[in-house]
Amino acid sequence: MSRLPETSNSLLLKVRDPANVDAWREFAAIYRPAVYRLARRQGLQDADAEDLAQRVLVSVADALQTWEKDDNRGTFRAWLLRIARNAIINALTRRPPDAALGGTGVTDQLAAEQATGSPIRDLIEDEHRRAVFRWAAAAVRADLHESTWMAFQLTAVEGRSIEEAAAETGKSIGSVYAARSRVMRRLRAKVMEWEA
């Protein structure tokens, strides 16, 4: 089970401030895809998944307001997980009966999980961490030469050989090794920045 990064407190402070749109965008950029993918993995169609992601964001945004007021509530991470999980399960189980879910028994399954708790929670954590990685990757990529990024993308993500990557990017073998490690380091730093 992958670990859900602790959400940056400073960022959340910013999110709670309605004036800071950028912070909200960043927040939404991470959470929205996570919920979307989660919904798709549960068998929802694209439009329904979009819809659900939006509704989950609504409830999280509402809930963010109340979070600060009570300090004895454990970590924000745990709290957010609970919010997100309940919001997702609520949204999925309250779908009208005639709506196509794209799979049978999803509702029952979710209802069961609401009681027992665990697999969907793992899914949520997994998708959240994935979203953080992708957010970080997009940020890192934007700051780098495309060839530097590609040295990483081709070898570390797509599993191509160093030689292939070197040929494709026009770099030397050594330069591919160097570049991909540099990207990895930046990526890790960016993810940890979110976790901090």
């Binding site: 798709r40 990757a137 570390a156 599993g159 990895m184 380091r185 890790r188």
Partner: peptide
């Protein structure tokens, strides 16, 4: 030195596209 094995693994798993992507 850039990152340990788990980070490399996560990067591979998470950054790779799959059927669930929008």
């Amino acid at each position: 030195s850039a990152a340990d094995r788990q980070w490399w693994g996560n990067a591979r798993d998470y950054l790779r596209g799959d059927d669930w992507d929008d």
